[in-house]
């Protein structure tokens, strides 16, 4: 009985020491699902924002398709940059 108590105390102490408020999760799969879901809509959202900025500037300076085209391309580029980054991130997590 005494032995068991000692053992339990030891275990509790060990647990207390490396507790760090539950930070020691080694499960990164959950954040991988998050990144995966993120990619799809990021692309569309960036293009949408690009188009909106372009149309807004065209209306402001009444230069119809110029800014629209420029920002459409920039939006597409931004979308792909975001996608690329998310994939790099995913690879990093995978390697860990």
């Amino acid at each position: 009985m005494q032995d068991k108590n000692e053992e339990l105390k030891k275990k509790i102490n060990e647990f207390k020491q490396n507790k760090n408020i539950g930070f020691k999760s080694n499960i990164n799969t959950s954040s991988m699902i998050g990144s995966g879901l993120k990619i799809s809509i990021d692309l569309i959202a960036s293009i949408f924002v690009g188009i909106m900025i372009g149309l807004g500037m065209d209306k402001l300076f009444s230069t119809k398709p110029i800014f629209f085209l420029i920002f459409l391309l920039l939006g597409v580029a931004a979308g792909f940059v975001k996608m690329y980054r998310s994939i790099i991130n995913l690879e990093k997590i995978k390697k860990k």
Binding site: L37, K38, I41, D42, I44, A45, S46, F48, V49, G50, I53, F71, L74, G75, A77, A78, G79, V81, K82
Partner: peptide
């Protein structure tokens, strides 16, 4: 000249992608 607008667009697109994902 090219990268700053791209970064700004991708920053502004954050709330839109965040909200559209849940809503859609």
């Amino acid at each position: 000249l090219l990268l700053v607008p791209i970064e700004i667009i991708s920053y502004i697109s954050r709330p839109i992608s965040l909200s559209v994902r849940l809503f859609a």
